[in-house]
Every structure is written in C-alpha cells, then in structure tokens.
C-alpha cells in the first residue's frame, strides 16, 4: 500500500460539498464516522485473527463507503485495499493494512478536533 500519509486525511472542499456545504452537519458526520469506524475496526481485527476473510471484506466495505462519503481519501483507499484482498481470500499483509487504517482513523480524528464547525 503506497498512499502517502503526508497529505491531509480529508479533502475538505469535496467533503463539505458532499454535506451540502453545511459545516455543522459535516462535523456531525465526521463524529458519526469515527465512532462507527473505530468499532468496526475492532470487529475487523477480530475477524482477521479468526481467519474469516469474507467478514473482513464486508466490514471493510462499510468503512470504505463511509470514508468515501466524507472524502477521507486515504482511509477509503486503505479500506478498499482490505476489502479487495479479503474478497480475494488473500490474507497477506491484511494485519498491516488494518494497522494503517487504525492510524489513519486517528489522523481523521485529529483533523476533526481541529475542524471548526
């Protein structure tokens, strides 16, 4: 996975546009996303250690959708990578990708904290 961690975790212009340029609403969505994605990630890691790659793909799919909605591009790309490998039944590197996704979620959380609604 070679997605630069240096860029901003959110494409703010795109994300805001998706939220109808409503900053308060966008902030609410970010909070919803973080809350939900962190929980899902816990389930994803559990499924991963249980070797249930179908479940891994399904969870990653949900995170991917939400991340796409918020223009959290890197989180989306990571979730997509996990989903496609899980779907292909290819478990290699999935634990690392999950770790990267967890770190990326924290970057989104940092961004959210600094985001003025």
């Amino acid at each position: 996975m070679t997605v630069s961690a240096e860029v901003c975790p959110i494409d703010l212009a795109d994300g805001l546009a998706r939220a109808g340029d409503d900053r308060a609403f966008y902030r609410e969505l970010l909070d919803l996303f973080l809350d939900d994605a962190r929980q899902r990630l816990v389930h994803l890691e559990a499924a991963l250690s249980g070797g249930d790659l179908t479940q891994v793909a399904s969870i990653a799919h949900s995170i991917k959708g939400a991340a796409a909605n918020l223009a959290a591009e890197r989180a989306r790309a990571l979730a997509w990578a996990i989903e496609s490998r899980g779907r292909a039944g290819d478990g290699t590197g999935l634990a690392e990708l999950a770790g990267e996704l967890a770190a990326e979620l924290e970057r989104v959380a940092d961004f959210t904290r600094s985001f003025e609604a």
């Binding site: 998706r18 109808g20 609410e28 969505l29 919803l32 996303f33 949900s62 959708g65 939400a66 918020l70």
Partner: peptide, 12 residues
C-alpha cells in the same frame, strides 16, 4: 447499516 451514509441519505 453504516451510520454516516444513513445520516447523509436521511438528511438529503
């Protein structure tokens, strides 16, 4: 099932 999409869809 995914709350962000649910919220966005509902709002839209």
């Amino acid at each position: 099932d995914e709350p962000v999409s649910r919220r966005m869809l509902s709002a839209a």
